[in-house]
């Protein structure tokens, strides 16, 4: 009796494991792929990293620095910082580097108010009030431009009626309109299902600023709105219905390109050319912020940022964003050199 029971239990457990393995495969595919991708590129970038580092920078060799690096902030910058952290480790860094995806506002809060993080990853420039709180804990934020994100407004590929919207229509779609036909009469009379980043995210702030003239009331009051800091939740929601629409950083669109349609804004497609010449209305800069004292006191942080700035252009397209202009990147490197006193 007892034995039979155990056999049955064992069978159940094995079966559930098999089921779990089957179910899990789709979920783990994507990260596994990117993992191997970066593995391939790592050796290259490691080399270029070494080449790029002249002798004076030897103290920032990833293999020689010790101690932890704590970064937190924008979910948009997250994939990029995560990739750079991975390469940094592969280049020989042996400490712990954490990249938290908590939203730009929260990233600044952790950097400027609590002072727990060494680097803030953000998708909007720092505000004056945030600079003030940073200064009140003795930090002077330095900005490093690392790339450009085009905010993607996307619908499911099953949606065959929307391809292009104006900024006014965007405000309607994410604000007062109840159904698609409220926006344009030829669109179907179906409720709009909205999937937007949560209020802690820089993406949300940026969208409200650009589309709603800084008034977050209409977008928060809109019915049928799902908010999440987790961009994958949004992707899944938008995939779920032809009447769903959402927006988020370009990288998440790139990851799900086949199943999602990206919209043109005011007739401008979000492609490299349009982002570079600033004609795409929803393009925005990506930054990391740190502080000169931190850079001097914690060589591992300086090492990571220098590594970031020298290698980011090799990776940024692969992660799904657009590279920053050469001038901006050069300015970032100069800011770094000035901060560490070289």
């Amino acid at each position: 009796m007892q034995r039979k029971l155990y056999a049955l239990l064992a069978l159940l457990i094995v079966m559930s494991m098999v089921l779990a393995a089957c179910g899990g495969s789709t979920a783990t595919d994507a990260p596994a792929d990117t993992g191997t991708d970066s593995g391939d590129t790592s050796t290259d970038s490691g080399d270029t990293g070494d080449d790029a580092m002249d002798d004076p920078m030897a103290m920032y060799d990833p293999a020689t620095v010790t101690g932890d690096v704590v970064t937190a902030g924008s979910s948009t910058v997250f994939p990029l910082s995560e990739r750079m952290a991975e390469l940094f480790r592969q280049a020989g860094y042996a400490g712990n580097i954490t990249v938290d995806s908590i939203g730009s506002g929260a990233g600044y809060e952790r950097f400027c108010v609590e002072g727990e993080s060494d680097i803030a990853n953000t998708s909007r420039p720092i505000r004056d009030t945030e600079v003030e709180s940073c200064q009140s804990i003795g930090r002077n934020p330095i900005e490093f431009r690392v790339g450009t994100d085009a905010l993607a407004v996307v619908v499911s590929s099953e949606n065959d009626f929307v391809t292009d919207v104006s900024m006014e229509e965007l405000a309607l779609i994410f604000g007062e309109a109840e159904t698609w036909s409220d926006v344009r009469s030829e669109w179907p009379d179906e409720p709009i299902q909205r999937f937007i980043p949560g209020t802690d995210s820089g993406t949300f702030d940026y969208f409200v600023e650009e589309v709603f003239d800084e008034n977050e009331e209409p977008i928060l009051a809109a019915s049928n709105t799902q908010l999440s800091e987790d961009d994958n939740v949004l992707v899944q929601g938008i995939l779920g219905s032809p009447y769903a629409i959402g927006f988020y950083g370009y990288a998440y669109y790139a990851e799900n390109e086949g199943a999602l349609n990206i919209l043109s804004i005011e007739g401008v497609e979000p492609i490299r050319e349009n982002v570079d010449n600033n004609s795409y209305p929803l393009a925005r800069p990506l930054f990391i912020y740190s502080d000169a004292t931190i850079l001097v006191e914690k060589p591992q942080v300086a090492s990571f940022i220098w590594f970031y700035l020298t290698n980011v252009n090799d990776e940024v397209v692969d992660v799904g964003y657009f590279p920053a202009s050469d001038a901006d990147l050069l300015a970032a490197r100069n800011a770094f050199l000035a901060a560490v006193g070289r």
């Binding site: 939203g103 929260a106 299902q193 949560g198 049928n224 908010l227 800091e229």
Partner: peptide, 19 residues
């Protein structure tokens, strides 16, 4: 329809850093 429960809401808004 989608609707957020009380517990779900607490989890979501405390998911980012809540000041």
């Amino acid at each position: 329809q989608s609707a957020e429960t009380m517990t779900g809401h607490i989890v979501r808004i405390s998911g980012g850093d809540l000041s």
